[in-house]
Amino acid sequence: MTMLGTFIKPVHREGYKFIAIFAVVTALLFLLPIKIFGWVGAGLTVWCYYFFRDPKRTTPDREGLIISPADGVVSMIEPAVPPEELEMGPDAMTRISVFMNVFDCHVNRAPIGGIVDKVSYRPGKFLNASLDKASVDNERNSLAIRMADGRKLAVVQIAGLVARRIVCDVAEGTGLETGERFGMIRFGSRLDIYLPDGVQPMIAVGQAAFAGETVLADLKSDEAARTAITR
């Protein structure tokens, strides 16, 4: 990768209009006598571009690996029942929550390959996405992915405190490859991943995750859930 490529990244199509709006406002601000407002606008325009970046990712290519669908920090790992609209039953599954702040890349990627068995959008509140109750109360879009062996994995896009739109580019019946882009959330949010029964997480609370690259779990592993130490 070149030095320029380190800083210049492709932009998700959802970002074009926002970057344009920020740029126009910035140009108008520079017409004011106090130029500091223009420079503030310029900084915000750069941030807007950075928020909508859509970099290429290198996804581990081995059957059975469950990969993070989002950039961010693992904020919770706990048993929880998947959203009822997915009709995956009343039993709790291991839920891994990845919290994205406004500086993380917000493009979401499929955690594993399979067929999108169900897609369900539900309006709701805009609580801080790091809160546990955000899984229940906030606006969300839920996907059930049926894997080749028939088991299902759920991934849920949850709007955050300042998020106002969830984008999902796939429909029921769509086939997804591991690491393939399927949507994004605008301006701070969270993704929940519900692991199939008996699958243990290979990541710990507090660890950073990168969409399409970080391994969350392995369907073929009998390793116990991992722990970690913060130093």
Rank of each mutant, 00 (worst) to 15 (best):
D137C: 01
L176Y: 07
T214S: 15
P60D: 10
T58N: 11
Y49H: 04
I19A: 07
A92W: 02
G150V: 10
I77V: 14
G198F: 10
I77G: 08
G89E: 08
K9L: 13
R140I: 02
D91S: 14
G124V: 09
M147P: 00
K118E: 05
E177D: 13
D218E: 06
E14Q: 11
V136T: 14
M93L: 15
R122L: 11
C168S: 05
A204T: 15
D137I: 05
G41P: 05
N128I: 10
I67Y: 07
D137Y: 09
M1Q: 07
I145C: 06
N101T: 15
P79L: 15
D71F: 08
D104S: 11
D218Q: 05
A134R: 02
R231W: 11
G41F: 07
M100Y: 01
A171V: 15
A224T: 06
D104C: 14
L219W: 05
R57T: 12
D91P: 03
A208S: 14
A80S: 11
M100I: 01
V74R: 00
V136D: 11
I185L: 03
V46T: 09
A211G: 15
I66C: 12
V199H: 09
L4D: 01
A225W: 03
R140L: 11
G5Q: 14
P79C: 15
I229D: 07
G212R: 12
N108S: 03
S135Q: 10
D54E: 12
W39M: 03
Q157W: 04
